[in-house]
C-alpha cells in the first residue's frame, strides 16, 4: 500500500512531534480521569449541606459546590459527559459529512452543484448562532435532553467534513490511479472504498481531532448559556454557569471546570496541529 497510514516510520514521526505528544498526553490524561471516574471519584450527586462551599482541601481537592457536592467528582464525571457527547457528535457528523462530501465530489454534475450550494449555505450561517437557535427551538419542541444538543450540533457540524471530503475527492478523481481503476471498469463503490477513502483519511483525521476541540467548546458554551446538558448531570459548562453566582465567595466552582474545558480543547488543538505538521511533511515528501 503506497499510502500506508499506520506504518512504523509514520507512527514514530507522530510521537517525535512535540505538539502531538503533549496534545495526546493531555487528552489521554482527561480521558483516563473520565474512564476511571467511578473508581477515583465519589458520587457526583451526593449532597452534604454541612460541607457546602468549602475551598479546595485534601479531602475535596477542587472544593465543594453550593450543595456540598465534591467538585472533583463532578468535574471528573463531567469529563465523561463532555467526551462522550463530543465523540458521539464527531462520529455522527463525520459519517454523514464524509458520505455526503464523497458522493458529491465523486459523482459531480448536478448532485455536486446542489450539495455544494447546501454546504455554502451552512458555512455562511455562524455555527454558534445556528446552534443556539436550533437548541432553543428543539427545547421548545421536544424538551431539553442530551440528544437535542447532539442533534443540534450535528446539524451544523457535518458541513466541515463534507467540504473537506468533497475537496479531496475532487482532486483525487483526476489522479492517475483513479483514472486507471475507472478505465479497467472498477465499480464506483469499489473505487470510493479502495482508493478515495484511504487517501482522504489523513486530512479527515486532522479535521476530526481539531473538530473534537471545537465541539467540546460548543457543548460547554451551550451549557454555560443554560441551553446544554441540564443538571443534575454534571457537565463543565453548566457547572461553570452555576458557579458564576459564587464568583466572589467560591471562585473554585468556576475555576476548575473552566480549566478542564481549556485543557481538553487545547489537547485536541495541539494534537490536531501536530498531526497536520506530520501529514504536511508527508505530502511534501511524496
Amino acid at each position: 500500500m503506497e499510502f500506508a497510514f499506520a506504518s512504523e516510520v509514520f507512527r514514530s514521526r507522530i510521537f517525535k512531534n512535540n505538539l502531538c505528544t503533549i496534545g495526546f498526553g493531555i487528552i489521554l490524561f482527561i480521558a483516563m480521569l473520565g474512564l476511571l471516574a467511578p473508581v477515583i471519584a465519589d458520587d457526583p450527586y451526593k449532597t452534604n449541606l454541612a460541607e457546602r462551599l468549602k475551598p479546595p482541601s485534601l479531602e475535596h481537592p477542587f472544593g465543594t459546590d453550593q450543595l456540598g457536592r465534591d467538585l472533583f467528582s463532578r468535574v471528573v464525571h463531567g469529563a465523561r459527559t463532555s467526551l462522550f457527547v463530543a465523540m458521539t457528535i464527531s462520529l455522527i457528523s463525520m459519517a454523514i459529512g464524509c458520505l455526503i462530501g464523497a458522493v458529491s465530489g465523486y459523482f459531480g454534475g448536478i448532485i455536486d452543484d446542489i450539495i455544494g450550494r447546501i454546504i455554502d449555505v451552512f458555512l455562511a450561517i455562524p455555527e454558534l448562532v445556528f446552534n443556539i437557535a436550533l437548541v432553543g427551538i428543539f427545547c421548545v419542541a421536544y424538551g431539553v435532553s442530551t440528544w437535542n444538543v447532539i442533534l443540534a450540533v450535528v446539524i451544523t457540524n457535518w458541513v466541515s467534513y463534507a467540504r473537506i471530503t468533497r475537496g479531496i475527492v475532487l482532486s483525487l478523481k483526476e489522479k492517475e490511479f483513479v483514472l486507471c481503476a475507472k478505465a479497467i471498469g472498477a465499480r464506483d463503490s469499489y473505487i470510493l472504498l479502495r482508493h478515495v477513502i484511504p487517501n482522504a483519511i489523513g486530512p479527515i483525521i486532522v479535521l476530526a481531532t481539531l473538530n473534537m476541540g471545537n465541539v467540546i467548546m460548543t457543548i460547554a458554551s451551550l451549557g454555560f448559556l443554560g441551553l446544554g446538558i441540564q443538571p443534575p448531570t454534571p457537565e463543565w459548562g453548566q457547572i461553570l454557569n452555576s458557579g458564576k453566582n459564587y464568583i466572589t465567595t467560591a471562585p473554585w466552582i468556576t475555576f476548575f471546570p473552566g480549566l478542564f474545558i481549556a485543557l481538553s480543547v487545547l489537547g485536541f488543538n495541539l494534537l490536531g496541529e501536530g498531526l497536520r505538521d506530520v501529514l504536511e511533511k508527508r505530502t511534501l515528501e511524496y
Binding site: G213, M217, A220, S221, F224, G237, L240, K244, I247, T248, P251, T254, F255, G258, I261, A262, L263, V265, L266, N269, L270, E273
Partner: peptide, 22 residues
C-alpha cells in the same frame, strides 16, 4: 495563539471580572 483558541471566552471573562472588578 493556541491558548487563545482553547480558553473559553466566558471563563476568561469571568476570571478577568474576578481580578479587575471584584
Amino acid at each position: 495563539s493556541l491558548l487563545g483558541i482553547s480558553i473559553p471566552s466566558f471563563w476568561l471573562g469571568l476570571i478577568l471580572i474576578w481580578i479587575f472588578s471584584v
